[in-house]
Design a protein around this nucleic acid. Structure first.
Lengths: 202, 202
DNA sequence: CCTACCGATCGGTAGG
DNA sequence: CCTACCGATCGGTAGG
């Protein structure tokens, strides 16, 4: 009744392929990933590479899911256990900036790049990405509202602040990846803290 | 001594090709543009399409320049004649948001998409794009500093505000192109006005 | 997981 | 500006 060796091996192989696919897609874009060069890099045949997924597009879908997991592991999971409020929002911002500053993907934020690439290409990949982005926006707005609820006075609408934070993450990603400007990291961190109403440095 | 007819025709053809290239690249990305399908769409041969530019990459470079021109015509040129200060910054924000809301490119902001696509691909296209983005950042920071100079009190650093505005433009572009959320336009406009310290609506 | 192959398309060039 | 072609590569499949 124990799993056949080949089953374990198959899962390992699948995992190995997905990780390599995420790397390639991060550097070259989802459309830039080709099964031929990815297979060559892994020392496999094209058929062996695509087989576990059925098609190139389903391999890209698996890579997108994996990238979402990596983002959540870096930014969202460290918050578990903290009570909602300004302290947790501050942690979220720090984890988010750290994720962009020391990015687990060689080409910068995978979801941002995929969004720009897929927004004009209808299909299941675009649909799934829209779900991922929408869900993250909702999560952000909830965290912001919880933080605002603990301090008196008028606040900007949580949706607007969420847009500002997402925008700052995109601008930071550009300043790191395209402009290679090391001053961008502290600047974006301060801007995020200011946008949500946290005290900011001198 | 008058220019030969063929010279005028050649310039017209070149212009026509560049415009079509910008459209294709906006929808499919710069890497997604192929000379074969672009030639077919224009009823030309591949050789005739690429000839005036020398190579596909130089055609892409021409498309990038053209996209920069379109952006400046929409956002920067309308400001000419206005004195620096809050009024001109307000106009800049409105033209910028309008440009994104009713975009001259079918796939959304060309420069933002190109930035995300090229940031991991070293070469002359990336170098040129970096110049374009850097120059725009500088211009923005100058406009922000001029507006701040006219009002008393402490202000956020102009570089930080420039990052916030650029980020908001990217987030708005995503909300329009990927999420197709019509509420994004007024929200981003308010966020930009707030970020630069202009009075915002109710 | 492999080899061997499919038709289609890629960017580019020779020659006019 | 064209036709006609180059070698390379694309994603996918048949058959094992």
């Amino acid at each position: 009744m124990s799993p056949r060796h080949s089953t374990v091996e198959a899962a390992r192989t699948r995992e190995r392929i997905v990780r390599a696919a995420v790397e390639d897609a991060s550097r070259l874009g989802l459309e830039g990933l080709t099964v031929g060069s990815l297979a060559r890099r892994l020392g496999m045949s094209k058929a062996g590479l695509v087989g576990p997924f059925g098609s190139r597009e389903q391999l890209l879908a698996a890579a997108l899911e994996q990238a979402g997991q990596v983002f959540r592991a870096a930014v969202t999971e460290p918050l578990e256990g903290l009570p909602p409020g300004p302290g947790r929002l501050e942690q979220l911002i720090d984890r988010w900036v750290d994720y962009l500053a020391d990015c687990p993907f060689p080409g910068g934020c995978f979801v941002t790049a995929a969004s720009s690439e897929l927004d004009g290409r209808p299909g299941p990949l675009r649909d799934r990405l829209r779900e991922i982005v929408t869900s993250w926006r909702r999560r952000l707005a909830t965290e912001i509202a919880a933080a605002q609820a603990e301090s008196p006075g008028r606040h900007r609408p949580p949706d607007e602040v969420a847009t500002t934070l997402i925008g700052l993450s995109m601008a930071l990603n550009q300043e790191i990846q395209l402009l290679e400007d090391p001053s961008a990291v502290p600047r974006a961190r301060e801007a995020m803290r200011h946008a949500v109403g946290l005290a900011v440095g001198p």
